[in-house]
Amino acid sequence: MNRPLVSTVLVVATAALLGGCASSQATYVDPASTRTLSNVGEINVQDWNMAAESMINSLIAKHINSGSVKGSGPDGRAVLAISRIVNNTSIQIDTDMLVKKIRVALLGTGKVVVDITAGLGGPEDPLAAEAKREQQLLGTQKVSGRPDYTLSGKIIENRTRQGNQRESTYVFQMALATRDGLAVWEDEKTITKQGKRAPVSW
C-alpha cells in the first residue's frame, strides 16, 4: 500500500478526532446588547429587555412624569404592591424576568417604593412581613397598611406557521390600579419573531 497516502489519512483522521473532542469555549456577552441568542419558540433575554424598557418608559412618561404620583410611603412616595401576572403562554416562564426590572426602575425614580410584604401568594419577604405586623400591633411606628397602587399583567402568546417559516408573537399587558380599583395606567407591548424551522436531524 502507498505509505505516504496511509500517513496522510492517519493525520487527517487524528485531526478530525481531536477536533471533535475539543470543548467549545464560552464567550461572555452583554445581556443589554443585541448579541444574545434568540429563537422563535421562547421569550429570550432580548424580549424581556425590550418589554421591560417599553413598560418602564410608558409608566414614567404617562403617569409618573405627570407629577400626580403621591402616596403614603416615606417622603410621600407611592407604595406599590405586585398583583397577579398571568402567564397565558405555552411555555414556563418566571414573570419576575419582567416585573423585577420594572420594580427596580420604579424604585430608581425616587417616586415609588415597593411593598414586599404584600402579595397574592404570600409575602415575598416573610421576615419583613412579620416585622411590619409587630410594628402595627405595638403602634411604635406609623406603618401604612394598604398599598397605594397595585401592578397586574398578562403575557399572551400567538404562534403561526407558513411553510417552513415560523412566527411567534408575545403580548405583554400591564395595568396600574389605585386603591379604588381604578386603572390609572395601562399599556401593551407586542414582540413578534420569525424564523425558519430547523431541518430534521438524525
Binding site: A32, S33, T34, Q46, N49, M50, A52, E53, I56, N57, K100, K101, I102, V104, A105, G108
Partner: peptide
C-alpha cells in the same frame, strides 16, 4: 444605570 438601559431593535 438602570434596567431600561438596553439595546432596542
Amino acid at each position: 444605570e438602570g434596567p431600561a438601559a438596553v439595546s432596542i431593535i
